[in-house]
């Protein structure tokens, strides 16, 4: 199938990719070196390919690249400051043992970021519910729960 152009905003800058219609957003991003977006299952189950699409967390294996025409995509790399400083959400994961192998981490971080934008002070149940689509096999989630709580504190301090 012939390739077509898709224009979108990636982490704040305009990009143009050439993709086949069947190319998922996950594969397109990875093909262009945006490898924080991981392929863990490509079946909408694991959450390692999470991106924020116009601020909303989605699994990029369930999105066709051509569908993001004119839209905005944020990945974990995009959260890092220009000075190389981690975003408070990322920093919280480092501080609280929310990371082990690191494969689920970019997705976890993005979902947490989106959660805290929507709900700056989430309860235990709200945290569980928001992160239920991001699987982690290493941490048992307990370190991730601490990280989300910590991230909420850090963001509050920053505000």
């Amino acid at each position: 199938m012939t390739k077509r152009e898709v224009h979108f905003t990636l982490n704040g800058r305009s990009v143009t990719y050439e993709v086949e219609p069947r190319t998922t957003l996950l594969r397109a991003l990875r093909h262009h070196g945006v490898t924080s977006v991981k392929r863990g299952c490509e079946e909408g189950e694991c959450g390692t390919c999470t991106v924020l699409l116009d601020g909303v967390p989605v699994k990029s294996c369930t999105v066709l690249a051509l569908e993001v025409e004119g839209r905005s995509v944020l990945t974990a790399e995009g959260l890092v400051g220009k000075d190389g400083k981690l975003h408070p959400v990322q920093q919280a994961f480092v501080e609280e043992g929310g990371i082990q192998c690191g494969f689920c981490t970019p997705g976890m971080v993005l979902t947490t970021y989106a959660l805290l934008k929507k709900n700056p002070d989430p309860s235990e149940d709200e945290i569980r519910l928001a992160l239920a689509g991001n699987l982690c096999r290493c941490t048992g989630y307990t370190g991730i729960f601490r990280s989300v709580k910590r991230a909420a504190e850090l963001l509050k301090d920053q505000a």
Partner: peptide, 11 residues
């Protein structure tokens, strides 16, 4: 862990 949080570590 910082590189993992940033997603910049290459697998």
């Amino acid at each position: 862990d910082p590189e993992k949080a940033a997603g910049t570590l290459k697998f």
